[in-house]
Design a protein around this nucleic acid. Structure first.
Lengths: 225, 225
DNA sequence: CCAAGTGAGCTTGTATGGTAGTATTGTTTG
DNA sequence: CAAACAATACTACCATACAAGCTCACTTGG
């Protein structure tokens, strides 16, 4: 059994895109890094074609920028774009929270409960990566339970960009635990079928996420444009 | 000068994707149609590779579905997904309208004025294609003027899907002119700096768009899944 | 010494050949 | 006659080769 390449699924292009995307969001590939099709192809033992398709996909979601006949680079973080992204995400997720308060799927409610407990554990353990993964699962399940899974697709890439920007701010449990508390506040409002409270709790949650952004920019100006 | 191929811009893959997308939205390529890479390549005088990249792009935006080793088809219209898409679009554009009422760019306001007059003319003339193009320009300019152009990117594909679904309902001026009136109502509320009224006008506008959908499905069941 | 020109070495973009897998169809058999 | 089976034609996918364009360093003329 090969533990290095767990052979996730799908085509080589899909696997490459998922892997590169993960590395970019996790800041393993720093903003500004030059990506060579040839180098990546050699690194993963495939041809240039699937690498190219993966990069095109990443360019479409604005994680990389392809400069024709010049090169491909990991895009730097833009504070202005991040604020605009938060605006869109807030609009969609607040509407989802409102709808969730009007009616929520029972099965999704069960899964949310488990997710919150798990997030609590991960926060205390200080596991950034797993915490972010379960944070994402929380918002996915919320959209599903509210009956609009397409809403998640619309904000999926936006959240990924925000996660990348805030990757360095999740330093320990003291930062992550309040986020779990905010999640619980949202769910409480949904359980109480209070749409205004649910929207308010979601808005407060999303408003705090980017609070550390100026601090990060001051510490790591090379990651920003 | 070659009038057939206006050589828009960019790579062959981009041109192909734009052209195919236009044809799909305009229902020239009916939902359910099988798309062959070879046939398209021969038709446009290019190789299969750029065609493939174009189809991958269209698959990412859910206009086609690629079945591995089987074929690629134009996706059929789903009423349920269309309702979910409207939900997301409403969330984003209502937030944009609200922000626009709090402050709007003067230059964008000028362009909106011209766009509305032009839309009026096109509606009376019964020019569906140009009307939809200017309808899109209206929403783009609104997002720009409100200071969140990224919001348009988020709903761009969603609106394209809705346009495809409603393509057959824009039969004449009697259908298009009310839409222009709704646009004017939105702008009036923004001019009055009344955020609630702006959001309400936008919500009413977006709510009416899909009203004809059941009618269309009854007349053209082969376009739906 | 400086500036403009030139060519080599990169890059992405495109074309083509080959492979694995699926649906179809013609054939064979119970 | 019907049903199971095998060969064929089609697909997306990947690998390889070639072409076009940009960057930059070196050269060369002033």
């Amino acid at each position: 059994m090969d533990a290095i390449t767990p052979a996730p699924q799908g085509s080589a292009a899909h696997r490459l895109e998922a892997e590169l995307r993960r590395a970019i969001i996790g800041l393993e590939l720093a903003p500004g890094t030059r990506l060579s099709e040839q180098e990546i192809a050699a690194r993963f033992g495939v041809s240039r074609q699937p690498v190219r398709e993966a990069l095109i996909g990443l360019a479409r979601t604005r994680f990389v920028e392809i400069l024709p006949q010049r090169g491909t680079i990991v895009v730097k973080i833009s504070v202005r774009k991040m604020m605009q992204a938060r605006f869109v995400r807030e609009a969609v997720e607040c509407a989802v929270a409102r709808r969730a308060a009007e009616g929520f799927d029972a099965g999704a409610r069960e899964r949310i409960c488990d997710l919150l407990d798990m997030q609590d554990k991960l926060a205390r353990r200080g596991d950034h990566a797993a915490f972010q993964r379960h944070d994402e699962l929380f918002h996915i399940t919320l959209s599903e339970g509210a009956g609009c899974p397409l809403a998640w697709e619309a904000v999926s890439d936006i959240k990924a960009h925000m996660d990348r920007a805030c990757h360095l701010s999740l330093t320990g449990p003291e930062v992550m635990l309040p986020l779990v508390a905010q999640h619980r506040a949202i769910i409480d409002a949904i359980d109480a079928r209070d749409a205004n409270a649910a929207e308010g709790a979601m808005r407060a949650h999303l408003s705090e996420i980017l609070r550390a952004l100026p601090h990060i920019e001051a510490e790591h100006p090379e990651l920003f444009e």
